[in-house]
Write a protein that binds this DNA or RNA. Sequence first.
DNA 1: GATTTAAGGTATGCCGGTAGACCATTGATT
DNA 2: AATCAATGGTCTACCGGCATACCTTAAATC
Lengths: 237, 237
Amino acid sequence: MDAPTRGSAADRLSPVLRPVHAGNGFEAALEQILQVIRLGLVAEGERLPAERELAERLRISRMTLRDVLKVLHEQGLVESRRGRYGGTFVSPRTAAPDVTGIDIEDTLRFREVLELGAAELCASRDLTEDQTARLCDALTATRDAAPDDYRRRDTLFHLTLAELSGSPSLAAHYAAVRASVNGLLDCMPLLVRNLEHSQRQHAALVTAVLAGDAAGAREVMREHCAGTAALVRGFLG
Amino acid sequence: MDAPTRGSAADRLSPVLRPVHAGNGFEAALEQILQVIRLGLVAEGERLPAERELAERLRISRMTLRDVLKVLHEQGLVESRRGRYGGTFVSPRTAAPDVTGIDIEDTLRFREVLELGAAELCASRDLTEDQTARLCDALTATRDAAPDDYRRRDTLFHLTLAELSGSPSLAAHYAAVRASVNGLLDCMPLLVRNLEHSQRQHAALVTAVLAGDAAGAREVMREHCAGTAALVRGFLG
DNA sequence: GATTTAAGGTATGCCGGTAGACCATTGATT
DNA sequence: AATCAATGGTCTACCGGCATACCTTAAATC
């Protein structure tokens, strides 16, 4: 009765029963701090939160956190300075990040799904004055960005949109997938023509969102994502 | 320079720096097995994989897994039988699940985003013959379902669609959010009229997907999700 | 220049998850 | 009736992350 030829019981479970972080808050913490750096939430040269605070926020012990920072230090991603006004600082990027183990098609597809959802949800909501201002600020920041800071501000703009969608889950998962996307983008050269195009799309997106034009916002976002996807597939596919 | 009035540095980090499951594969494993049960991947009366196999798949020790099963047993969700052909069996549901701590709006919105994405991705892909057959099988299973088994087969249908989207991330996250949705639905009565309506939508969805009509698939799915969302908001909002 | 303060660096004992072996039970097979 | 095989149930030694306390460094302040 329940034994179809396609999709055995064992297979049915695999989407859910993936390996659980075996024993390690360590790995999860490493992943999150890497996200913070890849997303540019803390820019190059800026300071991460103090070890004690970071450990508390991640709910891991300071010792474990220090193990994580040690790994990041060994890879040249952060640099620590002691004393008052010291801290752990993000180093300038030196080498292309490690993108082995990233499923490119999965990443690009999932990214687009979340972006489309965020755009549409935002356009369908009544944003408060403060939220509208945050969105416009983020847009302005991308417009004024120097080329080498563009990707970071672009990321912050999209993160803002995801946050304003009204779905915290969407925002959290977008942050994760965007970190992967940035890892891919960091393997590629920055094309100024794309920046300009991208900037126009951002503006159109905000216009549609503020007008409550959900279908329009989605279509602009779809083009925006398609552009990135084509670039990535071209360089890494 | 980087200190805007809106969105301090501390706030910027919060979407990523959420507490890491402090110390436990235990909780994550509990969550996943609950998902398997809530999704109906193992139906009432059916057997979970053997402890040794389950522990291996989750990459946790058998002792820890047994702690998890002990909790589930205490809550009356599973029953164990020893001996060959024994195992851990899913008990018939007795009480409404605990939905405290679920953000209903977040769940419904995120669910819709993922469903729309899955529908559109599936319609945009060329499904193999085998994949097409899996989808049609899942549809047929919902059509033939007895009312008290409908929700389970409906879940399996949507999971199939998510899997066929070509984005494993999407499938995994859909499984998680759908488990929450089912928790909500299990607090509500089953309306036969909705089943029929839902069934027509499923059929239209498959038709659109197989025709490669991405926009159509998305709109059908949007209505489908809106229906569920309205029901849930009506009962629990 | 002494003091203060906030930051990174270090040492120690505890506890919980891990691994692996072994025991107990049951029903099918012989 | 005896055996086998697959399962849940139990025990034990081990290791890694945890909490906590304390030390060291360096910049700002007095």
